[in-house]
């Protein structure tokens, strides 16, 4: 018998594809915000034709790709593990003969796969119909972008996994999610290109995984900067976060097993 993880990827895809109406409703919000954010960035570019390396085409691509990646990378709304810890259902997850973190990651990759079809492609198509999107000039960029997007999902998973695992100690992790929910978007280059931030802020953010989430895949798509180094940075954060996540899960489940919750 094969490893169960490929099947868990497919299951993640299938689970999320059952909520099609919700995906459609979410798409409406994505598109409305895309229009608003594009308007603001275009108003900025009305002052100067190029701001920190972004011209009109790069800026609208930044907006629409960001709106599309939003639910693929998934900053908000993944509270499943925390809920299962709070309700005690995590006992079932810990009782299975699998690697819980790997299983959840597999499911999340499947989820992201569905999101690419349902939530990334439509806003990009919408944006391309109304705005001058800057498409990659080199064919290899598409492959690099696919890798960058996948690494962004893994980094995001690593962060969400840690947020969720905080429920082993806090029980109610909703406050933690709320804080991440409000800072995550701006710090990861979803709202405003990080290149527009002051020098000191960019330097500080470079020491965090935040830019790996949106700024890096978008930069790769826009062919800004050197892609291989950017991907290596993402991979570094992915490995580090997953590693820390393993330790935290081990500690958390040990706490559950030893102290009895």
């Amino acid at each position: 018998m094969l490893s169960p993880y490929p099947q868990l990827v497919i299951a993640g895809f299938r689970r999320h594809s059952t909520y099609r109406q919700a995906a459609l409703a979410g798409l409406t919000t994505n598109i409305v915000f895309g229009l608003l954010r594009a308007a603001v960035l275009l108003a900025v570019l009305a002052q100067r034709p190029v701001v920190a390396g972004y011209d009109v085409a790069a800026a609208v691509t930044f907006v629409w790709l960001g709106q599309g990646l939003l639910t693929v990378v998934l900053l908000w709304g993944d509270t499943e593990l925390a809920t299962r810890i709070r309700t005690g259902d995590v006992v079932i997850d810990l009782g299975r003969p699998w690697d819980l973190q790997a299983a959840l990651l597999a499911g999340d990759l499947g989820r992201a796969g569905f999101a690419v079809l349902a939530r990334l492609v439509p806003p990009m198509a919408f944006g391309a119909a109304l705005f001058p999107i800057r498409w990659p000039e080199r064919p290899a960029t598409w492959a690099l972008f696919a890798v960058a997007a996948m690494l962004a999902v893994v980094v995001s998973f690593g962060i969400r996994f840690l947020l969720n695992a905080s429920a082993f100690w806090l029980l109610d992790a909703r406050g933690v999610f709320a804080v991440w929910g409000v800072v995550g978007g701006v710090l990861s280059g979803l709202v405003i290109p990080l290149a527009w931030f002051p020098e000191w802020a960019r330097t500080a953010l470079a020491f965090t995984p935040a830019p790996s989430l949106f700024q890096t895949p978008i930069d790769v798509f826009l062919e800004r900067g050197e892609p291989v180094g950017a991907l290596a940075g993402q991979a570094f954060w992915a490995v580090l976060l997953l590693g820390v996540g393993r330790v935290v899960l081990h500690r958390g489940s040990r706490r559950l097993v030893v102290q009895g919750g």
Binding site: L171, G175, V179, G181, V182
Partner: peptide, 23 residues
Amino acid sequence: AYRTSFALHVVAQLIGQGIELVA
């Protein structure tokens, strides 16, 4: 434990409204 969560919620709301200003 939930009070920690509550405090974090208030903090999130404080920052959440301010983050738009940062942008």
